[in-house]
Computed example of a mutant assay.
Amino acid sequence: MQLLLPGFTPPDRPAEIRDAREALAAYPDTTVADLCRHAKILGRAAEQLVDSLLTRLGERVYPADEHERHDRLLILPDGASLRLQVKTRHTQAANGNYIFTLRQRSERGCTGRGPYRPEDFDILAAVVLSENVVRFTADWQLRQVIHVSEIAELRRNPRASLDAALARLGHTDAIPGGWDADLDLAA
């Protein structure tokens, strides 16, 4: 326990944080209402998972300002930067897959403000937070799917989808060890 300064009393935790702690204690076994109510907290957790993964892969990643249409900047070895958008799914569709619909987040909840445009970001980081996995893609589609069968490979080789996205964008020089796969498969 950290000692407090004499006469200093830390502020009470905000009600939203107290509510989130209770509501998310059994995550991912959480109600849809609680997932929506605490979407900003869970979105921040997804962004931190992306930061952690990219940092573990030796990449330089920085948060973007809140008003930007992307969440992160990935700085490549040559100094070029790529804009990353982080999107999160917590629950599976009826067929077991994780479906991402690329809509801008709402200020309150998880309804969204409308679709993104291709010029808003370069790479999507699709996060299945309940599985702690990320798939990167530069394949522009408003609907992205991570099949449940992909989860094990995303966990086993977290760099593969990033390298494929970099190759798709023409940044093969930024891939450690180079790129020798078929570019048509780079999504």
Rank of each mutant, 00 (worst) to 15 (best):
R44D: 12
D71R: 05
G177D: 01
I123Y: 06
L73N: 09
G170A: 09
P176N: 04
Y62I: 12
N97A: 14
Q144G: 00
Q48F: 07
R44S: 15
V61C: 10
L166Q: 08
N97G: 00
R56I: 00
H67Y: 12
V61N: 04
D139A: 14
T91Q: 15
T137A: 04
V134R: 08
P176C: 05
R69N: 12
G58Q: 08
T137N: 04
I146H: 01
K87Y: 01
A64H: 05
G170L: 11
R159L: 04
T101N: 12
R60Y: 07
H70Y: 15
L169D: 01
S161A: 06
W179H: 12
E59A: 11
A125D: 05
R89S: 11
N157F: 10
S106Y: 03
T91A: 14
Q144C: 01
G79M: 08
P77S: 15
I151F: 08
R44W: 06
Q92I: 09
P77M: 07
E107W: 03
A138I: 05
Q104A: 11
H147Y: 10
R168Y: 06
T55M: 02
G170K: 10
Q85V: 02
T55E: 09
S106A: 14
T172G: 00
L82K: 11
F136Q: 06
Q48D: 10
I75N: 01
E150R: 14
N97R: 03
R135D: 02
Y62L: 11
R69E: 10
R108W: 02
L54M: 14
V61L: 03
F100G: 03
E131T: 04
R89Q: 13
R143T: 13
E59Q: 12
L166G: 10
R117T: 07
A46M: 04
I146S: 00
R83W: 01
A164P: 02
E47I: 05
P158Y: 13
R89Y: 08
A165S: 13
A152D: 15
L54D: 02
A93I: 01
A45D: 12
G79T: 07
P176L: 04
H171Q: 12
G177Q: 01
D65P: 03
S81D: 07
G112D: 07
